[in-house]
């Protein structure tokens, strides 16, 4: 595969995006969408040959659908002239992204994204939009303010974005080819490691164990009690009569448990920090929102302008 191809695809997508962003005419926007999607599709096709996938055809289809939805929504969001629509399209992007996350088996994240973003953050945005936007009549284009209708220098913006995309392409294309997804064994090991740290979970993970089975109490003991059997992982417990008892695992810890455990066990300090950040943000928001600003500060602006003019003078003393 010639290495230039992904860059051409990127460039095509960028041109498409540019057309969509900069043009007000429907035809160009359509052409732009077509070119951009084609470029993206090409890029994805090129990328599909890099290494193994994670799922079957269905997964691939889901992925493609969600990807298309995310990208088109994102483009609509960026190119739309009405901020409210942009916000709504962003909700759609989040939904699509969450779909992809589900495909990636990151259920907890997927749902928290929906809850936090679509549920909370976007609502805030909507509130602010409504606060700031004089509930204009959105039916008439002319009512929409100029700054929403015309983008600011789309060419340079898209070029920068294309440069950014090229960096990603440069990084992705050679580096990924050697990578294969985690195998079932890796996955099992990972879950076993997690289970080993959760000995109390064992009783509820095994169906049909005798009442008097004593499970290991510590991680140390638990490590030795997990065996990889013929058809999966096997727990070894000890009955009250002193016999060992092997039980297959029915219920492995799920994604939520996994994330939760990792959060508190591996990143406690970061967790606390995140809490502090949120708290500070809350304080900040309160402080900022309470501030009373004079509506008309033309005088202030003028005075600021004056002082700046003072610095601009070109006296010989000022420098070389």
């Amino acid at each position: 595969m010639p290495t230039i191809l992904p860059y051409i695809a990127t460039a095509a997508s960028a041109i498409g995006l540019l057309l969509v962003l900069a043009s007000t005419q429907r035809v160009f926007r359509l052409i732009g969408s077509a070119v951009g999607l084609a470029g993206l599709a090409w890029l994805l096709w090129l990328a599909s040959s890099l290494g193994d996938g994670i799922g079957d055809v269905a997964t691939e289809v889901f992925f493609l659908v969600f990807a298309a939805l995310a990208v088109t929504s994102a483009v609509r969001m960026v190119s739309g002239v009405k901020p409210v629509y942009s916000a709504l399209f962003f909700v759609l992007v989040i939904m699509a992204v969450c779909g992809m996350l589900v495909v990636l088996e990151a259920f907890f994240i997927a749902f928290s994204l929906v809850i936090v973003y679509a549920g909370a953050i976007l609502i805030t945005y909507m509130f602010v939009l409504m606060l700031a936007q004089q509930a204009s009549d959105t039916e008439h284009e002319s009512e929409i303010p100029q700054y929403d209708r015309a983008p600011r220098d789309p060419v340079s913006g898209v070029i920068v974005a294309a440069i950014f995309m090229s960096i990603i392409v440069t990084a992705v294309f050679p580096a990924i080819s050697q990578m294969t997804p985690a195998s079932a064994a890796d996955r099992a090991q990972s879950q076993a490691d997690l289970l080993a740290r959760l000995p109390r979970q064992w009783a509820s993970s095994v169906d049909g164990a005798p009442e008097d089975v004593v499970w290991p109490k510590t991680t140390q003991e638990a490590m030795g009690a997990i065996k990889v059997g013929v058809d999966g992982l096997v727990f070894q417990g000890v009955t009250s009569s002193g016999q060992t008892f092997n039980a297959p695992i029915d219920r492995l810890p799920g994604n939520t448990q996994h994330v939760g455990w990792s959060l508190v066990a591996s990143f406690p300090a970061s967790l606390e920090l995140a809490g502090v950040i949120l708290l500070m943000a809350m304080f900040g928001a309160v402080v900022l929102a309470r501030r009373q600003v004079e509506h008309a500060d033309e005088a202030l602006a003028a005075s600021v302008g004056d002082t700046h003019a003072g610095f601009e003078d070109d006296s010989p003393e000022a420098g070389l």
């Binding site: 599909s48 996938g53 691939e60 995309m165 294309f173």
Partner: peptide
């Protein structure tokens, strides 16, 4: 090992977004 949703594709989509 089927070619369904390779990492590269996800990264491309992430980059595109």
């Amino acid at each position: 090992a089927m070619a369904g949703g390779s990492l590269a594709q996800y990264l491309i989509i992430s980059g595109v977004l």
